[in-house]
Amino acid sequence: MLKINDLHVHVDGTEILKGLDLEVKAGEVHAIMGLNGAGKSTLANTIAGRDDYEVSAGSIEFEGQDLLELEPHERVGEGIFLGFQYPVEIPGVSNLNFMRTALNSVRKYNGEDDMSAAEFMKLIRAKASELGMDAEMLKRFVNVGFSGGEKKRNEMVQMAVLNPKLAVLDETDSGLDIDALRIVSEGINAQRRDDTAILLITHYQRLLNYVQPDVVHVMIDGKIVKSGGKELAAELEEKGYADVA
């Protein structure tokens, strides 16, 4: 599904990713682990197409398509979702309106008609309730006044509504208490299917107790230096990055 080849990325003139290779197939969950500054978030932002992340060499293919040719919203249309480490507040815009506009943008991109208001309400209520989000939260402004856990939960509801092929979750577990972590994990597991893939970016092992990855990668200084099964995460926890790499 996702094929990254020798990716080099500069941010503000500094090279952050220095020749990264990664392949994620449908049905797989990959975890990328690394210390702060290793380039994990840069990878997530580059996949989503953020400005200022300048790809100087290498390629990203998504389902055989050159992803780097596409605008951020087109990537969403193709089925890529980025779960934010720090979800952004948008005052004055209700969560409902935001999600409905998002969903209809994606549908429009794929040549589908807008979803009717009634159908959308049914969908979002179901997804919110599955993820334990109070329906009142849907009426509130996007992320405004949400706690850290509520913001992450909101990301999961958005993911469930957009139902992406590939979800890239950037430190979705950070700042969560144990209950919130469990709910977020359930959201991720619900998204786990034969036809979807998930890329978890984290620097703690604890999320991986709830979401079992198929592959664990260790990232140091802009490269993946080691890959393995889920036991690699436990090894990292025990020995630290320096020894494992």
Binding site: A48, R50, I90, L103, S105
Partner: peptide
Amino acid sequence: DQLFYCRARGFDEEEAVAM
């Protein structure tokens, strides 16, 4: 950050600014 957040949810840039 706001613009990119909207764009990463499928809005083109015009829609993002307008929203």
